[in-house]
Amino acid sequence: MEEKDLKILAQNLCNPEGKKGIEIGEMMNATNIGMTLESIHAMAMEDNENILEIGHGNAAHVNSLLHVARNIKYIGIDISETMHHEARKLNAEFKDHAEFVLYEGDKLPFEDEVFDKIFTVNTVYFWKNPIGFLNEIYRVLKDNGTFVLAFGQKKFMEKLPFTAYHFKLYSNEDLEEVISQSQFKRMKISEKEEEIKSKTGEELIKRIYTVLTIKK
């Protein structure tokens, strides 16, 4: 894949746009589904909870999430207008339990202490102000709430050609340090491995990733 194509891929992984963005959204859902399901499991959802997902992509996984517990209220937010429309289209049958919100990416458009659980998969690389954004997540999370953050580890991600553009990569230690500077103080680290098709579509690769379960 040439440099210009890698740049287009990286930009669309950050903020999918248009027809190409829809294709990237489908690919992201396929390659990230393992991380997403692990994150949903780590939240330990219970009946009647309010769930927030940051960076929902095409949200083809929402059906699985809504069936984990009874009467779940899910809200997904994304900076991509393309993904916002795709998520609403793909989840039209769940409109009574799933809502999608377009936002700017810095401030969460919610009141304090709204959500029981919050999760995000493969978005931390694009946060402009990680400590400030973590404090925003802390603000909208209820007391005793759980925040789950899943990310590809730096030692794996830096081998991928497209991460040279738009990505800020983290090791476990890097993110522990960032989180320690936020209002969050307690976390559990779980390392995972899985085999996936590469986002350049060229081969199967072994992904090393981390699921952080962070408590308020």
Rank of each mutant, 00 (worst) to 15 (best):
K7N: 05
K7Q: 13
Q11W: 12
C14I: 09
P16I: 03
G18Y: 02
G18F: 03
K19H: 02
I24S: 04
E26I: 05
N29D: 02
T31S: 02
M35W: 03
E49V: 03
L52I: 08
I54R: 03
N58P: 09
A59L: 01
H61P: 09
S64G: 04
N71R: 13
I72M: 11
I72G: 06
K73F: 12
G76I: 06
S80D: 07
E81L: 13
H84N: 14
F100S: 08
F100Y: 15
G105I: 05
L108I: 11
F110G: 00
V114S: 06
V121D: 03
N122S: 14
V124G: 04
W127G: 05
P130I: 01
P130E: 13
I131V: 10
L134S: 01
L141W: 02
K142V: 03
T146N: 02
A150D: 04
F151G: 02
F151S: 02
G152N: 13
G152P: 09
Q153P: 00
K155F: 11
K159Y: 05
F162G: 09
F162S: 09
T163W: 04
K168H: 14
K168Y: 11
E177P: 08
S182H: 07
S182R: 01
M187I: 09
S190H: 15
K192T: 12
E193C: 13
I196A: 10
G201P: 01
K206G: 10
Y209F: 08
I214D: 02
